[in-house]
Amino acid sequence: MASVTVRETAGAGLYSRKRIEEMSGEKISACFQCEKCSNGCPMVFAMDIQPHRVMHCLQLGLVEEVLNSDTIWVCVSCQTCTTRCPNDIDIAHVVDTLRQLSARRQVKESQKSVAVFHTAFLSSIKRFGRVHEASMVVSYAFQNEGITGVRKQLNLGLEMMRKGKIKLVPSRLWAGKQVKEIFRKAGRKRAQ
């Protein structure tokens, strides 16, 4: 587990603990470091900053460190931490907030695939109103690793097609208009 280096600029970054609390609506200052979140986390083995330390970092204003961590991208959103927190902090939601902030700037190269996946997934919703799995996976694989990425998915894709698990033609819905509107509004807010 990598230790967190406290830089001299700590707290002077773009976001303070208070700002993250406002954005997430979660009372991060209530964390008393019981470590239940980290003990129950299924992904902790792949994290560079354990969940309880994420909370501690935020309390200390070390927001940049957390935004640059692997932790926020390998979190599976399983909600175990949120469920078990004795102080009712929705920790998984705090992680969502951190991912949103991180994605506004640049996601670190080693975790790029996760951000690319979410973009491909949301594009599919925006385009069709529903996710069209087959084209979404191809689009993700191509954006992530180019033609090599697509090739990696090919065998499984063909077998799933043989098994009748692939819907070839996406549904195009009149309701898609309303969905596009939701995306337009969300995009506008983000730009503000």
Binding site: H118, I125, G129, K189
Partner: peptide, 19 residues
């Protein structure tokens, strides 16, 4: 239409709720 699944809530809270 799609509920937003695991991608909307990590991207934008308002969008996740609206979907």
């Amino acid at each position: 239409t799609c509920c937003g699944a695991s991608s909307a809530h990590v991207t934008n809270d308002e969008m996740a709720v609206s979907l």
